Amino acid sequence: MANNIEVKELLDAGVHFGHLTRRWDPNMAPYIYMERNGIHIINLYKTAAKIDEASEALKKIAASGRKILFVATKKQAKEIVAEKASKANQPYITERWPGGMLTNFVTIRKAVKKMASIDRMKKDGTFNTLSKKERLQVDRLRAKLEKNLGSISDMTRLPGALFVVDITREHIAVKEAQKLNIPIFAMVDTNSDPRQVEYVIPANDDASKSIDKVMTYVTDAISEGLSERKAAKEAPKAQPAKKAEAKPAPAAVATEGDTQEEE
């Protein structure tokens, strides 16, 4: 992975641009290279190393079969995160964070099941038996649920990790994950406290190019982990088949030998 992370690519994407120096969090000092025109510049060599570290960890989580929930509700990150997370077959939240999404997961799952039951109603014809007003209400409810929870409909249990773009903005999601000891991976800008996160990726979390670049690296690693999991699952299936083919021959020879001795 490390070889694939080019510092020049990060530079071209503007990953190094931090916030105004007066808006910084002193805990980000180890990741800051210098100050230029009143703006902090992030050390991209440290960013590259942290992307590599986070990618390896995410790859292992994906290979273990756990989901990684992506959280990014800011305008410039929403579409990028939705697209990249979908490609890697991972759940994501890009609308408002539903309070209790993690700490009250049972209730959230009920809402997702409600969405599925509306879909069943439409398939089996029950929906058509409702009055026009009721149908309109059900459609509105379905649209609302789809907007807020559609992207997590396949998440049947708590995620194995959270990936957050801008921990200051998504502080509620961060707090819920901390309560449940769910590891947090995040793009952390110079105005945020990196101590809240297990896997810090010091990076510009405001520019779409920067978000796109970091998201590409991490989701590629997740896809790699999923491929490894698939290959590991398929390997044992192939081995018993070969053994089964090989077994009958010796058994037949042994039986034949026994018969001759008896004679």
Rank of each mutant, 00 (worst) to 15 (best):
G257P: 01
S227D: 15
E146I: 04
M101E: 03
I118G: 07
E79Y: 09
T103C: 06
A54R: 01
S131W: 03
K74F: 09
D139R: 10
D205M: 10
D220I: 01
G125H: 05
R169K: 14
T126N: 09
V218G: 09
I51C: 02
A173K: 02
V112D: 05
T126M: 10
L130R: 08
R142G: 04
L11E: 02
Y92S: 13
F185I: 11
N128L: 10
R109L: 11
P159Q: 03
G150F: 06
K237W: 04
A251S: 04
A82V: 03
N104S: 14
D139Y: 04
K74T: 13
A232I: 07
S153E: 12
V188Q: 05
A207D: 09
D205E: 15
Q260I: 15
V7G: 00
D189E: 10
R109I: 06
W97N: 04
I222N: 08
G99F: 14
M101A: 11
K75V: 14
V106G: 05
A238P: 05
T107M: 09
E245Y: 08
K113C: 08
A244C: 00
L180E: 02
A143C: 04
K242I: 14
S117L: 11
D220C: 00
R229V: 07
P250E: 03
I93D: 08
